[in-house]
């Protein structure tokens, strides 16, 4: 498990240590700003192109000669979600999942006033994932770009990772997988299609689509622009409607939170509340 504290503005949102934060924010701000400026100049909205530019920028930059180019993240703006679940079905269609394999699960939650609101829940792509260390055969991997993936060719199906994940984000293949036609990518952790009977599956941040500049299916299929997909390295995120935001400012200004912060998993999915949610209650199933 690698933690990239210096590249994660996540800490600016969720940590309490103010000074450390400011310091982190400054570093990130400077680096991210350069990139954002470069991007802005090119007038790019789609993340793919964005990431390529960042790649180019990173290569030309002398400050970051090596290391991963991206640190993927997701921002979910709960203020906009209307519970249509098109993200769920888009994900299931793309990955040939059974109906109950809701890698992107839209929960109907209640706020403190007892009113319903909707909360989409993909894999949190934790920086300190609870699911990775418990696997006896090392079938869970965390890539250097911050993606937690399952190697289904190795998974033996103990399901101890399902026990460990505090977000119920993992789904087992209890029966034959849905057959899938020939895919543009090989069956591998970055594109586990079709699923493998007797192994665990979960949201992959559509890992195989990212290098070619495509946004994850759930992002592009959200009609409300709820889900932003972003890169902490370049500090930019974009939603399916084409809106680009600067991650650090967007999170800070909107008081973003992470789900079940007390578990210490350091999720890379940030939620923007706004319905008067009682956050303790959301997290409460747990402690």
């Amino acid at each position: 498990m690698t933690k990239n504290n210096e590249t994660t503005p996540s800490s600016t949102v969720v940590d309490d240590e103010r000074e450390e934060l400011t310091a982190a924010a400054v570093t990130i701000g400077r680096r991210g700003l350069l990139r954002a400026a470069a991007l802005g100049g090119l007038g790019i909205t789609a993340l793919g192109a964005l990431s390529e530019t960042v790649a180019a920028a990173a290569q030309s930059s002398t400050t970051t000669p090596s290391g991963p180019i991206h640190q993927w993240c997701m921002i979910i703006d709960l203020r906009l979600c209307n519970g249509c679940k098109l993200c769920t079905t888009a994900c299931q269609t793309a990955h040939y999942l059974h109906e109950d394999q809701t890698w992107m699960n839209v929960y109907t939650m209640q706020n403190a006033a007892g009113e319903d609101y909707f909360m989409p829940r993909p894999c949190m792509m934790c920086e300190d994932p609870a699911c990775v260390p418990v696997c006896p055969v090392g079938a869970n991997i965390r890539t250097d770009e911050g993606l937690v993936l399952v190697d289904q060719s190795r998974c033996i199906g103990t399901r101890i990772c399902m026990n460990a994940c505090p977000y119920d984000a993992r789904y087992f293949n209890w029966e034959q997988a849905v057959p899938a036609p020939r895919q543009p990518f090989p069956q591998e952790p970055a594109w586990p299609v079709p699923q493998v009977k007797g192994t665990v599956g979960k949201c992959i941040d559509c890992a195989a689509m990212l290098p070619s500049g495509q946004l994850p299916e759930c992002v592009t299929h959200c009609p409300m622009g709820v889900i932003y997909f972003g890169d902490l390295t370049s500090d930019a995120a974009v939603n399916g409607m084409g809106a680009t935001v600067k991650v650090s400012t967007f999170l800070e200004e909107n008081d973003a939170v992470v789900f079940k912060e007390e578990y210490g998993t350091h999720p890379r999915v940030y939620y923007i509340p706004g319905h008067g949610q009682d956050l303790d209650n959301n997290a409460a199933a747990s402690s």
């Binding site: 418990v134 006896p136 055969v137 033996i156 199906g157 009977k197």
Partner: peptide
């Protein structure tokens, strides 16, 4: 108990061992 019992040999194959796992 295993979902994929045909891969049980991985438990006795040291290169696959993840020593931080309680199951191991």
């Amino acid at each position: 108990h295993l979902g994929s019992p045909q891969k049980i040999w991985e438990l006795v194959w040291p290169p696959y061992w993840n020593l931080s796992s309680p199951i191991l």
